[in-house]
């Protein structure tokens, strides 16, 4: 477990800011103790200081995961969020999309969201901004990138993609082995 270099921290925060904007500060400054980002084998974990200290007793090559895995750095040094980060993205999300019950399953199988499946959309979403996807019961299902801005969505035809799929909770089953 090592600290993220400044460059990588910057890349991580830039990615997170697409989804939760200035709420990143709330992830770093928490009232319930100190939390930090740690890196192992290119994967980034969000861990409380307390657990991190406990984990230092375990040799790093034996350690599989500590805290919450947010995602991983690719070989080209870009950051890719994993579905496991949803627990922290959903409460702070700034732009949201709600799905109709009929498209829920489609999304959970890894498909993009079409205009016809759109139940509700928050205002002022910019194009390619990160959005968190909910069902109509406000259960977070995953996240993606807005294919169209809110204004464009209103004019789009029903089959046009509104949001590109990035991760969904179906991955817990579909790609169980590579989630770690």
């Amino acid at each position: 477990m090592k600290r993220l270099s400044e460059e990588r921290t910057r890349i991580l925060f830039e990615k997170l800011s697409k989804y939760i904007g200035s709420n990143i500060k709330l992830l770093i400054e928490r009232p319930d103790g100190l939390y930090c980002f740690r890196e192992q084998k290119d994967r980034v974990y969000y861990v409380s200081e307390k657990i991190l200290k406990l984990s230092s007793n375990i040799p790093p090559e034996k350690l599989i995961s500590v805290g919450t895995c947010f995602g991983k750095f690719t070989k080209s040094n870009k950051f890719r969020l994993h579905i496991t980060a949803l627990n922290y993205l959903a409460p702070y999300a700034q732009s949201k999309i709600w799905l109709k019950p009929s498209t829920e399953q489609q999304f959970l199988y890894g498909h993009h969201i079409t205009k016809s499946g759109l139940g509700r959309i928050s205002e002022n979403i910019e194009k390619y901004q990160g959005v968190v996807i909910y069902n109509m019961q406000d259960l977070p299902l995953g996240f993606g990138a807005a294919a169209k801005s809110t204004a464009e969505c209103k004019l789009a035809d029903p089959l046009a993609s509104v949001c590109f799929h990035q991760a969904d909770i179906g991955e817990y089953i579909r790609s169980e082995e590579d989630l770690l």
Binding site: R10, F13, G21, S22, I24, L34
Partner: peptide, 22 residues
């Protein structure tokens, strides 16, 4: 490898990075 620093210092550094991004 970055040298270990106290968590509070790290937090401050992270906040500075967040500020510069935002």
């Amino acid at each position: 490898k970055l040298p270990p620093v106290p968590a509070t210092v790290e937090k401050k550094e992270n906040l500075a990075i967040v500020d510069s991004i935002l």
